[in-house]
Design a protein around this nucleic acid. Sequence first.
DNA 1: AAAGCGGGGTG
DNA 2: CACCCAGCTTT
Length: 373
Amino acid sequence: MTEDITSEYIKDFQYHISSWYEKNTRSLPWREIQNPYHTYISEIMLQQTQVNTVIPYFHRFINRFPDIHSLAKSPIEDVLTLWSGLGYYKRARQLKQSAEVISNQYDGIIPDNYLKLIKLPGIGKYTAAAILSIAYNLKYPVVDGNVIRVITRIFQIEDPIHLSNTQKYITSILNLLIPDNNPGQFNQALMELGSLICTPKNNQSKCLPCPVKSLCKANTHNLIHKLPNKIPQRQREKISQIIFILTNHSKILIQKRSEGKLLSTMWEFPYHELDNNADHNKVYSNISEALFNTQINPKYISSIKHTITYRDITCYIYQLEAQQENAITIESLFKQRNIHFQWISPHEITQFPHSSMIKKILTKIDLNNLSIF
DNA sequence: AAAGCGGGGTG
DNA sequence: CACCCAGCTTT
């Protein structure tokens, strides 16, 4: 099938893509200056995260860690704190690990070599190709979700896209199409096309402004809605939990998650997972007694919903104003369980690594009226 | 409310 | 290759 791709076809394809992109290039913070470090940081942040979400984080990150060496020297807690709310915190840990390697072994210069890049934690095929093409103008095609969608539609590739053979096939087509001149621009153009025009849910009308619609087999054969061929998604699990906002003298108790689990070492509020659809009002008193060996005027605040990967979480937020003796009981319980904890002022949460679920919970608490003591 | 989307790592 | 990562957008 790749033999259909003649040199005229390639020229035609490249011309349409590049002239479309020239008219549609967004000015983004990481495009302002040519700096491989900026490309690297932005590509890691942009994994599973939208451009508009990334922009403020990118500015703060570059400001706080202006180069590889400063990132390599900084404590991981600082990196995670800055990453708080971006999600997928392993990205931040791996970024920091890779910065150490680049700082120590490569003089702080991000390698312009595929095999060296791919060895760094957090850099896979996609990110390696993105850095090489965008930062170093080398001819490596990127194969992300957007590009896969665009290519399977244009060439009517019906094989399931999760198979490695299908991805290899897509890569081989891209290797024919990618130009010697400005391969990075070509890659960004295909991704931009996928995110603006060749979107997942697509009725044919969206194809009207597409620069390569005349070359697109799925468009010609009315198969846009069937491609790409994806395997069904995993069923989502419903989870309910009670969140304890324990307050004492205008301070809130936060605890640190243990290492190696989900959200490793991130800070959170004490919580208790509920059995499937248990009534949080009924189980609350038992739980608070079991956990804190005391009943402290519980006040139901509200609930929030939070979705992550394959879990739907409902949090029932309770506030408990602890008197001094209760606080001591609570502390001894936490020490007994070997849980790191700290009483903090609500605004100090910004100094601790925490997830966006914690941010969401905080919006439900009246921070100005925490404690009457 | 539900479904959809998705790079990299692990085993 | 299957499964997981405490997110976010579109339908």
